[in-house]
Nucleic acid binder design. Structure first.
Lengths: 225, 225
DNA sequence: ATTTGTGAACGCATTCACAGCT
DNA sequence: AGCTGTGAATGCGTTCACAAAT
């Protein structure tokens, strides 16, 4: 019970628990069991309990968890009881889409600006009126607006350079959508979402179904008999 | 060596190996060792070898792997030696961004259409001229264009419905960007990319750094001394 | 000397099973 | 009875270490 180093997998599930709790709270439900949460998310009830146990004892034996209290606790654990400010690097299609993505605005997050180098984009804004500034203003904006997260939506070729600039500007948490695995110094967290990898994983699944032997090496050798 | 059920983690790494091999091939390198690949991707060399060993013996002891051959083998394993056709559900910001995403066009993939119900969007097209059709045309398009993958970029509230329609239309592989975990029948693969979860995971990291005790339950009790 | 391929050892995450509380 | 919290057991993925090959 001391301090079981919390895994990434656990924190990801906390987000899912939180989402469900918000739903329940809006529906007026005020108590929930680990089994109910598990079923909704296709997990096991012990998984839910173990995840929560990393952070304290939030439930009541024989009863379950108080929806409102557990929601607040998880928000606190995830650091969502304040607003995390973020900038998006790259005002292309993806950058613009992310800037207007509902999940990235409100409920703990705020996109304060997009940064780009294209003169045709700098000075403009997204549909939600988030301003687009020149990349050179990064440090100033990070400081003035207390930005804590950088979201990288630039082409792979310039991703490392952009990540370096984020680190120089004092950013410690980066969400990277470029198809590279950027190098970052110790103490900086860079999470990569690799869309092409996700899609290729589906292609593998299809290929495997279509012909389960396709994956196996082994030329159709006419060795025996 | 028989058939070590291949894990999702392994196939994701295969995509990364493939990307690096393509780079090497373009640079004219023709042999590579597991150590070189591992270093580039921040993995261990045994990891690389174990991953490849799931599918056959591609290397030469004392020498390494032939870049060209290994690339072809991985493309075959991932089913990228043909073109996988996909449709995008939802022609909003995200759907449009994904439709024009370079990684989703060419090199084994082709986005053949976007589908939406908004009359203001239906009949139009993306910047790359991918057409936007009405959702009701889904089955017809899937059949006529031999579509194998559905990419879900609709709001969470309608995601399950859209997924159901994809399944009905005969789609067996789904990439879901909506903030829900859709139910799918056995034999259908649905991979979810949950952008909000990724971002919240970064928030947790920041909160943890700022105050390592924040996560712990335990009111600041004035027990001792 | 170098590098692959692989069984064995290890470590981490999940599940089990049950004591403890309502 | 019902449900949480948790040590024990299991399962899975990674790393180690070395035999086999060039």
């Amino acid at each position: 019970m001391a301090k079981p180093r919390v895994s990434e997998l656990t924190t990801s599930r906390l987000s899912l628990y939180l989402r469900y709790l918000i739903q329940l709270e809006e529906s007026g439900v005020d108590t929930v069991s680990s089994r109910a949460m598990a079923e909704h998310l296709m997990l096991t009830s012990s998984q839910v309990r173990k995840d929560l146990a990393c952070f304290g004892e939030f439930g009541v034996r024989g009863v379950g968890y108080d929806v409102h209290e557990l929601r607040q606790q998880i928000e606190r654990i995830l650091g969502l009881d304040r607003t995390v400010r973020a900038v998006i690097l790259g005002a292309g299609n993806l950058g613009n889409a992310l800037a207007d993505y509902p999940g990235f605005n409100g409920r703990g997050f705020e996109i304060v600006a997009l940064l780009d180098v294209d003169p045709g984009k700098v000075g403009g804004s997204t549909r939600r009126d988030t301003p687009i500034h020149h990349l050179d203003e990064l440090s100033r904006i990070v400081e003035q607006e207390a930005v804590e997260v950088g979201i990288v939506a630039v082409p792979g070729e310039v991703a490392q350079e952009v990540v370096d600039r984020l680190v120089d500007a004092g950013i410690r948490a980066i969400l990277n959508f470029a198809p590279v695995r950027p190098q970052v110094p110790d103490g900086i967290r860079c999470k990569s979402v690799d869309l092409k990898v996700e899609l290729e994983s589906l292609s593998f699944f299809l290929a495997e179904q279509e012909d389960p032997e396709r994956a196996r090496h082994e030329l159709p050798a006419q060795e025996s008999a």
